[in-house]
Computed example of a mutant assay.
Amino acid sequence: MKKVLVVVLAVLLMVTAFGCSSAPAEDTGADASVPAESAAADASDPVEEDSTDGKTLKFGYVTSDMSHEWYQNIVNGAQQRAEELGVELITADAAMDAGKQVTQLENMLTSGVDALLITPVDAKSLATVIQEAEAQGVPVICESNVVEGATTTVGIDSVEGGRKAGEWLAEYATENNIDPKILVVNAPANEDCRERVQGFKEALDESGIQYEIVQEVDGEGSKEKSLEVSADAITAHPEVNVIYGINDNATTGGMAAYKEAGLDESQLVAIGFGFEGVAGRTALLAGGPYKSAVAMFPDFMGQRLIDTAYEIANGGEVEERTWSGTTIITLDNFADFYTEENGEYITNFDAVRALIEE
């Protein structure tokens, strides 16, 4: 009877800690200034039955670069979901250093994590870590980028996302009698970015509309570089009336170059990819050239990472690819996916989850 009472009191103490604490999960290198952009999942979401005999699960997550809003919001979503499930989440930031990431992951394995979550800096550098994790029976869940030997990859279908952007432009151009002269701001060193452009072009070709990609530039995913290379392209091609960027930095950088060139912004249609947070949301809600974006919902992606790791840790099975949803966001449907509360925009996770179930 005394043993039962001790167990009950321990459980109550754990529930109190997770339910009341506002402190972030333990950090072994991540940026402590992560903005509180994302919201917790609906409390009514189903949770898999715990088969870990009361053990507190511990997951380790190493991101590639926490200076980007995308990864900040992924970690926010992951932290919140971990707290809901009673999981201890350790995070670290590799800061685009592949060697540092390997060391961080090895340290997490030594600490006894039940799952490794990785946004890879360099997939090829992770082979030894993957082998060590497999030897210890620790599942490896990668974000977006497929790594050989990992248990699963949580991410979007980048080609399909690009196709959604192309389909939207084809419809918009037809309805508004636009002859698209397109500047593509890419980051071709990244396979996901190449696929976003591939899908975009495929959808435009299949639509049957007349269009021209007047130039494709490498903005390297940064706003500053995207502005620089877009400025040169727009000087050479002032007829540009559509900018398609592989992320919000690429798109808004291209928009800034267009504005600096003194061109008529009312004639420009800008399409983003990612809709990562403040940058994309501000551009869309301003009602200017930024007309649409392929939204990837990073806070939901973080939740998918934790849910996937939790399912595996509890004996569940997952596919090699675990998909996260995307959709085209415009001013017309923004309110279907985001609600403003006290100056912050809260993601409607039920609406995002429905995208996966379609």
Rank of each mutant, 00 (worst) to 15 (best):
S266W: 08
S292W: 04
T252S: 08
G253Q: 01
A286N: 13
T251L: 03
G277V: 09
Q267K: 15
E319Y: 05
E224I: 14
P289D: 02
Y244H: 08
T251P: 06
G262M: 10
E265V: 15
E311Q: 08
S266D: 14
L268N: 00
A309G: 14
L263F: 12
L263Y: 08
P289S: 15
G280T: 10
I312F: 12
A313Q: 03
Y290V: 02
G245F: 05
T252G: 05
L285R: 09
A250I: 04
P298V: 02
W323F: 13
G325E: 04
G245T: 06
G245L: 03
D264K: 07
L268P: 05
Q303D: 03
T282C: 05
L331E: 12
D232E: 15
V269D: 00
G288A: 11
G274F: 01
E320Y: 04
F300Q: 00
G272I: 05
R281I: 10
T251Q: 03
E228M: 14
L263T: 06
G277T: 06
A231P: 13
P289V: 05
F300K: 00
D264V: 11
T322S: 10
W323N: 04
A231N: 12
V294A: 03
G287V: 10
A233N: 05
E228A: 15
I312C: 04
A295D: 07
E224R: 09
E239V: 13
T327S: 06
A233C: 12
L331G: 15
R281F: 10
A283H: 06
G316K: 03
E311P: 02
D264A: 12
V278K: 15
M255F: 12
D299H: 05
V278G: 08
T308S: 08
G254T: 09
A257F: 06
K259M: 11
F275E: 00
L285F: 12
D307M: 10
T330S: 09
P238E: 02
K259A: 15
K225H: 11
R281L: 13
F297D: 00
R321D: 09
I234N: 00
D232V: 12
S230D: 07
A236H: 06
G277S: 11
T235Y: 09
A279L: 15
A257M: 05
M255H: 08
A309S: 07
T326E: 10
G262C: 11
E311Y: 07
